[in-house]
Amino acid sequence: MRARALAIAISVVVVLLAVLWLTHRGPVPRPLIAQARGHCVLNTARMRRIHMMWLRQVRTRVVRDGMALRADRLTRCVSCHVQKNAQGHLIPIDAPGQFCSSCHVYAGVKIDCFACHAAVPEPAFAPGYFSRAHHIQAAFRQPQILPRRFKALLSRAAP
C-alpha cells in the first residue's frame, strides 16, 4: 500500500516536472537596447544604475527651481534615444521594444513618465534645439548633484 502511494506521488512529481520542462520558454532574453545619437550626460553604466534617482532630482530642479535649460532633463533623453521606423516616422520611446520599454519590461518595472510627457520629440526639439544648453551639459557630465547615499551605488559595478 505504502509502495503504491509512493509510486503515485513520484509519478505525479515526474509529470509536473515534465509539464514544466515542456512548457518553459527558457530564460527571458536580454533586452536589445537601441543605440542613441550623440553623447549622454553620464556614462552608460552609471546611467543604467542611477537614472531613476537622477531623473527624480532633475525634475525638481527643472519644475520647481526653474532650471529649464538643463541638458539632462527627460525631454533630452527622448530626443536622443527615440528611434524612427522604416517610413521615417518617430516611434514613441515607451512603445514595445523601444529604448525605455525594452529594459523596463525585462526588469518588470512600470514607468508612468509618458502618461504626461511626450514620448516623441517635436521636430524642432531634436538635437540642436538646446544649443544654448550645451555649456550646462558639459557641467553635468559628472554626477556632482547626487547626494552621498548614492555614492555607494555609483562605485558598484554595473550589471
Partner: peptide, 14 residues
C-alpha cells in the same frame, strides 16, 4: 481623459 499628443515642453496627463 488620457492624453497622448502632448508637446514636449508642456507635459500634461490624465
Amino acid at each position: 481623459h488620457k492624453v497622448d499628443d502632448q508637446k514636449p515642453w508642456a507635459p500634461r496627463g490624465k
